[in-house]
Amino acid sequence: MYPIKTTELFAYLFSVCLIFTSCKQSKKTNEVTKPTTETNLKDALTFYASFNTGINADFSLGDPRMFTVPNRKAVDSAQVGLHKPDITRQEGKGKYGAGLVFTERSKGYIYYPSSKNINYSKENWSGAVSFWLSLDPATDLKPGYCDPIQITDVSYNDAAIWVDFTKENPRDFRLGVIGDRNVWNPNPEGPDNENPIFNKRLITSKKPPFGSGKWTHVLINFSGLNTEKGKASFYINGKHMGTRNAIDTPFTWDVSKSNIYLGLGYIGLMDDLSIFNRNLTDTEISTLYELKNGVQSILN
């Protein structure tokens, strides 16, 4: 055997150690992958209701329960659960399994509480709301305005975020991100929903692609509310439909009274409601629209 000097042995062992450490670090580096778009969506999620196992949310940072109330002012008489006979949860009626079925236009409301389920901020508020609808607005809806979703502590015209169908055929589909009423309309005359000041604050999609027997994805995106650079936009089937910039009207909420109302005057199907704590990128919106099994697939 060739004799090894002490210095040579030390150098040999040192080089082996370096190789081992380098390999270990390389392996560790390879194991750490960059966050995917789906991971980013999951991290931003604050509320999700698939309606597949019930009416309560599958995931929520706040109260996951659905409530029914006869009117907005009767909060003391709100009941836990779904107690409107014209609204049911039915298997096979959703985009992904079960969904909500709205059959009549009637009094009363169903909602989820906003607190913690929406990342409201008095200083710089951003977020996104996603859901699916299936209906033919021309034949399914009764006369009058219809709000598939409305998020507010007072009403549609006072610190509210919503989408609606206009009251007569052919119906437009609109996004409303409306600040404090006493700021944008300090001297009201007539109904707000007919006020030109009000209508200028809406983003309108004419001839929207809804239809009987097919599902349409709706995404509400907003950022910077309660600053001078607020912005709101909405997407239908992953396509950008319009943006409103420079929203400087404040959005003042009593969060304990704010709710996520579903199906105001709506007749049709609804499924896969999700809410995020920030505005989404175009890539994230496309990913959300293209998920094969809905938001449930990013939670697994």
Rank of each mutant, 00 (worst) to 15 (best):
N237E: 12
L61S: 05
K107P: 00
F234Y: 10
I19C: 15
P250I: 11
G94C: 07
Y12D: 03
K239A: 12
G294M: 04
Q79C: 11
I285W: 10
K28N: 06
P137D: 04
N277A: 02
Q79S: 14
E31R: 13
S212T: 13
L299G: 01
S106G: 15
T249S: 13
N187D: 12
L175N: 06
N185Y: 07
A160I: 02
P148V: 11
N237S: 07
K231H: 06
H240W: 08
S258T: 11
D254M: 06
R72H: 13
G108C: 02
S130T: 11
Y145S: 11
P191C: 02
D248N: 14
L82Q: 04
L41M: 06
T252I: 00
L9Q: 06
R244E: 12
L135Y: 08
P143V: 07
V101S: 04
K214R: 15
T281I: 14
G268H: 03
G81R: 01
Y145Q: 14
P137E: 01
R105G: 00
Y2I: 14
P148T: 10
K42S: 12
L9E: 08
L291Y: 00
Y289R: 08
I118P: 00
K84Q: 13
G211V: 07
D86A: 09
G144L: 10
Y12A: 05
K207M: 03
N182H: 09
A74C: 04
E290G: 04
S223R: 14
T166Q: 04
T204K: 14
R72I: 09
K257A: 01
M1K: 01
E8N: 12
E228M: 09
F10E: 14
N221P: 05
F51G: 00
L202T: 01
F165M: 07
V101C: 06
W253R: 06
L225A: 12
V163N: 03
I161H: 00
Y12G: 04
V218A: 00
C146V: 14
A74L: 12
G99Y: 05
D76K: 13
F59T: 06
T39E: 15
I267L: 11
K239P: 00
F173L: 03
G54Q: 11
R89S: 10
W125L: 02
I178V: 15
R65A: 14
E38Q: 15
K116Q: 14
D43C: 03
E228T: 09
G99S: 01
N71S: 10
K5F: 12
P143S: 05
Y12S: 08
N300I: 13
K42R: 15
E91M: 09
C23I: 15
F276N: 01
D63A: 06
D140I: 04
G54V: 12
L45N: 01
R201D: 11
V163H: 02
G81P: 11
N245I: 02
I149H: 03
D147W: 06
P209N: 00
E194Q: 13
T139H: 07
G211W: 04
K93D: 08
G99F: 02
T68Q: 10
E189A: 09
T283I: 01
K214Y: 15
F276L: 01
T166I: 15
V32F: 10
D272P: 05
I118W: 05
E104W: 12
T283A: 05
A232C: 12
D43A: 03
G176D: 06
F198D: 00
D63V: 09
N293Y: 11
C23L: 15
L41Y: 09
A98D: 12
I110L: 07
